[in-house]
Simulated scan of single mutants.
Amino acid sequence: MGLQVGDLAPEFTLPRDGAGTISLADLKGRKVVLYAYPKDDTESCTKEAIAFNGLRAEFAAAGADIVGISPDPIKRHDRFKQKYALTFPLVADEARAVLENYGIWVEKSMYGRKYMGVERTTFLIDQHGRIVRIWPKVKVAGHAEEVLAAVRAM
């Protein structure tokens, strides 16, 4: 059984773009939008990142930080972030331990081939580290706006 609304979000400390690390504990006292995506610089992942980035000021005004997570390495995150002028942190879970803890490193299937990958999912975490909302199997169009509305409603 995966994570549920009301659960404490699993703690993590991961390397971030640029240098250094980010821990969920570092963000305590703020709302956190943790969105997981499969791969930097692919069509849907790029659209999702640009949408969240475009609303970053509104998220900040509502007291929320945005953090993107994928299994891509830091160098790839750095290029992706620079290419699209992204202004929120991207963390690298190359070992996929955090993705597994959140229940979103799953078996997928494409053209009859099975493989392991990230299920595009967004978690809204409150100031105390509890999961307030989960969006599984995200469809990118309109998603960032829907998440912002949920943040504002908290």
Rank of each mutant, 00 (worst) to 15 (best):
G2P: 10
S70R: 01
A153F: 05
A9V: 02
N101C: 07
E100A: 06
T46V: 05
H128K: 07
G2K: 00
E48H: 02
H128A: 06
T46C: 09
M116G: 06
G29E: 10
I69T: 08
G103H: 04
T42D: 05
L55K: 02
G103K: 03
G117K: 01
D41C: 03
I74M: 00
F88A: 02
E146L: 01
A153E: 04
F80L: 02
V106L: 11
V132T: 15
L34A: 08
A25N: 06
P15N: 07
R30E: 15
E146P: 04
K108M: 00
D126G: 12
A36I: 01
D41E: 06
R133A: 14
E48T: 01
A25F: 10
V118C: 07
A95Q: 13
G6H: 07
G63T: 00
P136A: 09
A49M: 11
A144H: 07
R16K: 09
C45Y: 09
V132D: 15
R30P: 15
S44H: 09
T21I: 12
F59Y: 08
G142R: 00
F12A: 04
R130A: 14
W135P: 11
G20T: 13
A150M: 05
A92Q: 08
L124Y: 02
Y35L: 00
L3V: 08
S109K: 06
G68V: 09
I50F: 05
P10K: 09
V140P: 02
L148V: 09
V132A: 15
L27H: 11
G142H: 01
S23T: 05
V151E: 02
D7A: 13
P38Q: 07
M116H: 08
D93Q: 06
E48S: 01
R152A: 00
V5K: 06
A95M: 13
K114L: 13
D26I: 12
D78Q: 00
M1Q: 07
A51I: 03
M116Y: 11
I134E: 09
M154I: 13
